[in-house]
């Protein structure tokens, strides 16, 4: 990172829109360090009061599942419909269940 003409590290930006909500991924930006990432995120993603809190995470620090593994990872949940409340038939007469 000594050559300033090279791309700076990439940060993923997460914004909390209002107190009580989750931080949500909004996009990414380049910055030389975490502080600059926060400052740029402020300018880039909250010009209209879109947030009350910012997380910046080095993109290279994020571990992601491989799309090629999607079947292996998520397929097993597909046939377990009994995990949903709507799987069970309960007579109409039974209330508040």
């Amino acid at each position: 990172m000594t050559d300033s003409s090279r791309d700076w590290p990439l940060y993923e930006i997460f914004i909390r829109a209002r107190a009580g909500l989750d931080h949500k991924h909004v996009g990414s930006l380049h910055a030389t360090d975490a502080m600059m990432a926060i400052e740029h995120a402020r300018d880039l993603y909250t010009r209209r009061q879109e947030g009350v809190s910012i997380w910046a995470v080095r993109s290279s620090d994020i571990v992601a599942s491989d799309p090629a593994d999607a079947d292996a990872l998520f397929e097993p949940a597909r046939d377990k419909v009994y995990r949903h409340p709507t799987f069970y038939d309960i007579p109409e007469e039974v209330k508040t269940l």
């Binding site: 990172m1 000594t2 050559d3 300033s4 003409s5 700076w8 030389t32 360090d33 600059m36």
Partner: peptide
């Protein structure tokens, strides 16, 4: 703007 980018990189590596 080059000097600003250079300064930002120098600052970041110093901090690191």
């Amino acid at each position: 703007g080059r000097w600003v980018r250079d300064a930002a990189v120098a600052h970041a590596s110093k901090q690191a």
